[in-house]
Computed example of a mutant assay.
Amino acid sequence: MRVLMTTDTLGGVWTFSLEMAAGLLERGDTVLLISFGRPPSAAQREQWEQLELRYSGRFESLVTEIPVEWAESEGPVYERGAALLEQEAMRFAPDLIHTNQFCYGAIDVPIPRVITAHQDVFGRNRSCDERRVLRSPFLTRYKALAQQGLNSADAVVAPTRWMLDDLARSFTLSRNTAIVAHGRQLQARFQNFRELRAITAGRVTDAAKGLDTLAHVTAEMPIVVAGETRPGEEGKVPGFGTARLIGQLAEAEMVDLLQHSSVYLCLSRYEPFGMTALEAGLCGCAVVARNIPSLLEVWGSAAMYFDDADALSTILARLHSNATVLHDARESAYRRAQRFTRARMVEQYLSLYRRLVTPAERTQYAA
């Protein structure tokens, strides 16, 4: 099967699309991956280059700097992106288009289109109670474009039931919907010799990541924050309590940090799935998560949950002082994380692809 997939270079969407591409390529499929928004970093370009070398002739990549749909921008952003995708569809002749942006479900091609819903601006605002931005001109346009894409797509997929239900609060979902949990393949292992510290991740400017909770946490256990910071903000800064900010890490650096740490804190107020928490579990970290429905759905009883900074402080104190509790929490998260494999995710998506791409519908889109 030939699959044209869109991505962006921020966080979980990039990781998801790379996992999907690698899984499809392993099965003998052909993939064109097109990025939107910020250009890939050097480390991200290296990931693409590795796929190109390993699967020569079956993997292509294309970098655009067309803004993503949820970023405030001026001009005909959707029109530029749609024109590019239609042109690439004509050249690449895919059997199916898998877009990780809502709006491109509406591009004008006679090819099945699948949308994966990774986040929604309105849902994020509800979770963060940012009602002041709900009526901006940008969001009016965002909603119209996203709804158009959702109406036109052949299937809409979310990684959790919560995400699908929350999306239905923002938009009308009249088409075929499905839930496919994200999956991850890491060269990681459960090992007992690691530092007694907690790791969390996220852009410090993103209220949805909940990093401001750290300002009110008291804990003997060191806390390290990995993520994009403002210039000069590495180290201990006001607003993050005793936590230490270390800046943004490449994927390999983040995995190494997790493999040598004991605890991962998922502080997010809005988290449709939690890819970094999954990586932490696969690396053998105990997962301590905010008590929100999506994280409860993913982790069940395998994580420890908090509602506020006081509860988080209590959990960290317990993990710091009791080696048995810490080991059991790490083992529970590790076992739960094993369920979310790349192979399972890709197979479920392929099953959906096959239902959409029947022999009668497999029309070559060519000039």
Rank of each mutant, 00 (worst) to 15 (best):
L10S: 12
G12Q: 10
E26V: 00
L33K: 01
R45T: 04
E46G: 05
L51G: 02
E52L: 10
R54K: 15
G57K: 09
L62M: 15
V63H: 13
E65D: 15
P67Y: 14
V77Y: 11
Y78Q: 07
E79V: 00
R80T: 03
R80K: 15
G81D: 12
A89F: 01
D95T: 01
L96N: 03
L96S: 02
T99N: 01
G105T: 13
A106M: 02
I107T: 06
P110R: 10
P112D: 11
F122T: 00
S127K: 11
V133T: 07
R141K: 12
R141G: 07
K143R: 15
L145G: 01
Q148N: 13
L150N: 06
S152C: 12
A153H: 07
D154Q: 09
T160L: 05
R161G: 00
R161Y: 02
W162A: 03
M163Y: 03
A178E: 11
A181P: 08
G183S: 04
Q185H: 14
Q191E: 05
T200Q: 01
G202F: 06
A207E: 09
D212L: 07
T213V: 15
A215L: 03
V217N: 03
T218C: 00
T218D: 11
M221A: 02
I223W: 04
V224Y: 00
G227L: 06
T229Q: 12
G232V: 02
E233K: 03
K236E: 09
I246S: 06
E251R: 15
M254Q: 10
L257V: 00
L265F: 01
C266E: 15
R269T: 05
M275K: 06
L278F: 12
A286W: 12
V288S: 04
A289D: 11
L295P: 09
G300M: 03
G300R: 04
G300V: 07
F306K: 04
A309D: 03
D310R: 13
A311N: 03
L312E: 01
S313R: 08
T314V: 07
L319C: 06
S321R: 15
H327Q: 15
E331W: 14
S332D: 13
Y334V: 06
R335S: 04
R339P: 00
T341N: 11
M345C: 13
V346P: 09
L356C: 04
V357H: 05
T363K: 08
Y365Q: 02
Y365E: 01
